[in-house]
Amino acid sequence: MIPADLSLEAYEDHVVALCFSAAPAETDFARLGAPERWKIYRRMVRSRISKVCVSAMPRTMRCLPEERRKALFSQWMAEDPPRTRIFRELPVQFGAWAKPHLLADSRAWLSELAEYELLSWTVRTVDERNAQPSEALSFERPVVMSPSVRLFSAAHAVHIKRADEAYPQERVFACLYRDPDTSKAVTMSLSPFIYDLMRRWHIAPAESLTESVQRTVTARGSGIDTKLIDGLSGVLADFLQRGVLLGSLPSSA
């Protein structure tokens, strides 16, 4: 039974601590009566939360021995327990916390793989109603991207699945977006120039397309030539067709 002198708030704090502390003492469980039953709650809570993280980043999790995975989840819940009510956001919170731990792993690709899997997870559920209004693409106006677009760069080809999980060293520039028809996350490899250009769109969303191209070219120390223009037109047409780009911001906006 719940001790009568425990206020509602203190009772709730106590239960949350029973769920998330690394190793609650037997006396902590016994304080509310029926310790075995409270241990059931603890197990259910922790397993539900761990499971959604595993389902969001299955390849990363497969690379961690079970004991290491358990220890990471346990440390996460004790140090930085779930602060979102939205269940699907839990893996992202876990990923942010776990990043330094994964970076410390001897496999240099591990934290990149985690980042990549979490981006794919997020892209699938971005709310398209956050899209800005758009009209036909114009070089004189800022571009409007799909709200689902995320940029990804890595030093290993973690975006290509491998059975042996030995991801080769390879400079990767890519964007992820949600296919408007299938709603699946798609990864598109980019040239370093297009990657930088898209970064520019993220950093300076009010710049016209012409300006963003010029600034990107200048920053890269290259020049604008017909090869670049032809290549760019092809990429822009592809982006529009895939739904990566929605068009340009209307002049009234």
């Binding site: 719940i2 206020s7 509602l8 708030e9 009772y11 709730e12 704090d13 239960v15 949350v16 769920c19 998330f20 709650y41 259910m44 809570v45 539900r48 939360i49 327990p81 779930p82 602060r83 979102t84 009510r85 269940f87 839990l90």
Partner: peptide
Amino acid sequence: CFGGAGDTFVHDLLPLPPRPETLEV
């Protein structure tokens, strides 16, 4: 029920002691 404390969420439906204080809350 309650589902957490402060800004922490347990993602479960936890039981409440049926008391006058709980009823007020």
